[in-house]
Amino acid sequence: MNSPQDLKAKFPGNLSAHQKGTMLAALYQSSFPQLTAVAAGVLGRQEGAEDVVQLAASIALSKNTQFESEASFLAWMYSAVRKCALNERRKFSRRRTFATDPVNLHLIDNEPDVSGAKSVDPGSGELLTDQTCFEDDLLAALQELADDARCCLLLRTVHELSYAEIAEIMEIPQGTAMSHVYRSRQFLRKRLSSSI
C-alpha cells in the first residue's frame, strides 16, 4: 500500500479527466486484492468476492463520482464493497437451493477415509477440488465470526497488512482491529482444536 500521506494528497487542479481516470484505474488495480479480501470477509467465502468488487466499481462509475484524492476514492470503494457484499450475503442467505444435494453432502461428510475425500464449502454447498475436512470446519467456524472480525483476520493473516492499514480500510480504531484478530484466532483455535 502507498503511504497514507501520498494517498491523501489532492489531485492537481490541472489534471484532465482522462489522466485522473487512468490514475484511479491503476489504484483500483493495485487495491483489488485487498478490496476482494474485504468482500470475502463480509461474504464469509471467497466465491463471489471478485464479482462484488467489480459491482462496487461499476457503481462508482454509474454514480458519476468525483474524487478529490486517492484516499477519498479508496475510502469510497472499501465502503461500497462492504455494502455490496452485505447485500449479496443477505440475498445468499435467503436462497434455499444449493449446487449439491444436501443428502450427498451428508454422505460426503461421513466418508470414513477423509484424506482423499472431496469436501464441501458450507457457504455455497459446492465441491472444491482439494479442500480438506479441516478447511470445511474452518469455513464453518468463520461463519460464526462477525463480518468486521472476518475482514480484519483475512487482511492480517492473508494480506499481512499492519493494524494501521486495517484500521483505515475498515474505518475502525487500531485497537479494535487488533482485538478482532486476536479474538477471532482464539475462537477458531477453540472451535478447531477437535478437528486435528
Binding site: 479527466a17 482522462h18 485522473k20 481516470g21 487512468t22 484511479l24 484505474a25 483500483y28 488495480q29 493495485s30 483489488f32 486484492p33 476482494t36 479480501a37 470475502a40 471467497q46 468476492a49 471478485e50 467489480q54 466499481a57 461499476s58 462508482a60 462509475l61 458519476n64 463520482t65 468525483q66 474524487f67 476514492f73 479442500q131 480438506t132 479441516f134 478447511e135 474452518l138 469455513l139 483476520l153 483475512l154 493473516t157 492473508v158 494480506h159
Partner: peptide, 20 residues
C-alpha cells in the same frame, strides 16, 4: 488453511475506465 481458502487474487485485465 485461511491462505489456501482465501487466496490473494490477481486484479482483472479489463480495468474499468474511471473517467469522471
Amino acid at each position: 488453511a485461511l491462505r489456501k481458502s482465501f487466496p490473494i487474487v490477481a486484479p482483472p485485465d479489463n480495468l474499468p475506465s474511471f473517467t469522471e
